[in-house]
Design a protein around this nucleic acid. Structure first.
Length: 277
DNA sequence: ATGCCGTATTACATACGA
């Protein structure tokens, strides 16, 4: 089972690259962020004509998330109020289209685009912390249903120094502040693990390179696109890859795709090594 | 090194991203 995440920074601009990547890599599910288009204008037919299912939850100009799969997806849920009681907070934080989830072969895949946060202490930063708190509440529902959870997307947070090209300069700032990190850790709890770190301990693995300042040419990036797996799934993980070469495309997104290969449904023939099969 | 990039918008300059 191959599940992937990719912040495409506009689905309409990146449509050909997305279809090409689906056909070459053949993921069972691709989760997109920053589709940047209202649902009425989403390029649904172009994707369906290639033999894929597509579900989207978007808005004009900003944000927007989508799911693309060659398989049937079950129980697709859009936004926070797909899972949360429709209280004032869930409605307010659901105005920006940043969450979509579905069941894929029994796995609850939750695709998120965490707010950017602008600047530490700014109103957008407060919003980011509130949003993470709401995500935490949101995840209680699939947990209560005992669904194995795969939480993935663009988190706009680097949890550790090794996830930043220049930790001395950037730690404490936006995407690397204590409150953001605590907010995300609280969402993850004891059970969810960053599957990339199951297989790779070194720094210099990035998923986002700023368009500005020649960040790609200097390989100055951040690892802010993550795949978190519950204990049941992480035990079956075979590999987790950052598809770095995609950032070198003509007219690239500023993010590269990240994928995880999971032995799912689990087979019995794997050796248990180092905390995973 | 808060930006010189890229995307979107009742666009031809501005907001936003991270």
């Amino acid at each position: 089972m191959l599940i992937a995440t990719w912040n495409v920074n506009s689905i309409r601009t990146r449509l050909d690259q997305v279809i090409k990547w689906m056909e070459e890599v053949k993921p069972d599910l691709l989760c997109l962020q920053e589709t940047k288009v209202d649902d009425t204008l989403f390029p649904k037919e172009a994707i369906e004509s290639k033999g894929f299912q597509v579900f989207f939850h978007g808005q004009k100009a900003y944000n927007g998330v989508a799911l693309i799969s060659p398989h049937e997806l079950d129980d697709v849920r859009m936004g926070f109020i797909g899972e949360l009681p429709s209280d004032t907070e869930a409605i307010r934080l659901g105005e920006q289209k940043r969450v979509i989830s579905a069941l894929l072969d029994g796995i609850r895949v939750v695709n998120v685009y965490v707010p950017n946060g602008s600047e530490v202490g700014s109103p957008k930063y407060i919003y980011k912390l509130e949003w993470l708190n709401c995500l935490n509440r949101y995840l209680e529902a699939p947990r209560k249903r005992d669904e194995p959870i795969c939480l993935l997307g663009d988190f706009n947070i680097a949890l550790e120094a090794r996830d930043i090209h220049n930790p001395k300069r950037l730690t404490g700032g936006i995407m690397a502040s204590e409150k953001e990190r605590l907010g995300l850790k609280s969402v993850l709890g004891e059970n969810m693990q960053d599957v990339f770190r199951v297989f790779e301990n070194e720094t210099n693995h990035w998923s986002w390179w700023d368009y500005r300042s020649g960040a790609w040419d200097r390989d100055s990036g951040w690892r802010i696109d993550h795949i978190y797996l519950c204990e049941t799934l992480v035990m079956q993980a075979r590999s987790c890859l950052i598809h770095k070469s995609i950032r070198g495309n003509q007219k690239p997104s500023d993010h590269a795709p990240v994928s995880v290969d999971i032995n799912w449904p689990p087979s019995e023939d794997l050796d248990y090594v180092d905390g995973h099969y």
